[in-house]
């Protein structure tokens, strides 16, 4: 039996090693491209091992580190803030929705779900956020819209519903309020799902470039991914207007390798964050065993 288990583990590990290799391979091409010189990239395309090794793309980025560091700061700030408030508020609404006896539960579910299908479109949303609430060119515009995502609320709801009722019932008999049950019992018991949602919110915000595209004109408030997007888009504008003679001599554009390096720089730090969340998935197991 034990031997069988060990063999199983070895098979699994081998499988995942190969699978992860396949997944990481394209990403590695990108890293390798960012370490190549742009002329040879044109010549031979992407290589597994950059030859010759050339760090000038990173040099180009780091020549003016102020902008990148600033974008890191901005992105980190709004990602963490959104994560904290988002998880808290979504747990607050997910808990009542997980209580099958609650009247009007379906209506609230629908109220949330409806927004996943229907949206007012760009212009009216812009008018509300910019002209009415004046959130453009503030950090809040990254945080507030989309803070409540029905998708995650439903995920939490499903998890909360799976917590044995007996635990909460005994608290109720002891006279605990629903607030106390939520914050004292449900939330501590739900670390896996909360960590998952927190991770998702954090990463979604970390990857956010669209908000800046629409609402941010102040370059001090650019998000990291928008900086990258901007580099690529500047080139696309040139491509699309190749026949507009006026822009023939727009200032020099960063090369492809710089764009790749920027993509690596933008993705890197968020990857370090991931294991931190993973800790809580593991804890979920112990909570589960205590529960039984």
């Amino acid at each position: 039996m034990k031997k069988q288990k060990l063999i199983n583990q070895i098979i699994l590990c081998t499988f995942f090693s190969i699978f992860c290799g396949l997944i990481i391979f394209p990403f590695w091409l990108l890293v390798s491209a960012s370490l190549s010189d742009s002329a040879s990239l044109l010549e031979t395309g992407y290589r597994i091992i950059p030859k010759p090794l050339d760090l000038s793309a990173y040099g180009y980025i780091m020549r003016n580190p102020q902008q990148i560091l600033n974008a890191y700061g901005i992105t980190f700030t709004f990602s963490v803030t959104s994560m904290v408030f988002g998880v808290l508020l979504m747990a607050m609404i997910a808990y009542p929705l997980s209580r099958s006896g609650l009247k009007g539960r379906n209506a609230i579910n629908f109220y949330l779900y409806f927004t996943m299908l229907f949206s007012g479109g760009l212009v009216p949303t812009y008018i509300i956020i910019s002209s009415v609430l004046h959130l453009n060119n503030t950090l809040w515009v990254y945080i507030l819209p989309g803070l409540i995502s029905p998708w995650y609320v439903f995920m939490m709801r499903t998890f909360f519903a799976g917590i044995p009722d007996a635990i909460m019932e005994s608290a109720r008999i002891d006279g605990a309020s629903e607030y106390k049950i939520l914050f004292g019992i449900v939330i501590p018991l739900s670390k896996p799902v909360l960590a998952t949602v927190a991770l998702f919110v954090f990463l979604a915000k970390w990857n956010d470039w669209n908000t800046a595209l629409i609402y941010i004109t102040d370059s001090k408030l650019y998000s990291l991914q928008y900086l990258l997007q901007k580099m690529v888009e500047d080139i696309n504008i040139l491509k699309e207007n190749a026949t507009v003679s006026a822009i023939n001599d727009l200032s020099k554009l960063p090369t492809e390798t710089v764009r790749m390096a920027m993509a690596v720089v933008a993705a890197g730090p968020a990857l370090i964050v991931f294991p931190f969340f993973q800790k809580y998935f593991v804890k979920g197991l112990t909570v589960g065993s205590v529960k039984g």
Partner: peptide, 19 residues
């Protein structure tokens, strides 16, 4: 518990739906 999240959804999702 639902009030604040619902207000946020109202402002950022339902109000623009007039559009």
């Amino acid at each position: 518990l639902c009030i604040i999240p619902m207000i946020l959804v109202f402002i950022f999702n339902y109000m623009p739906m007039v559009g």
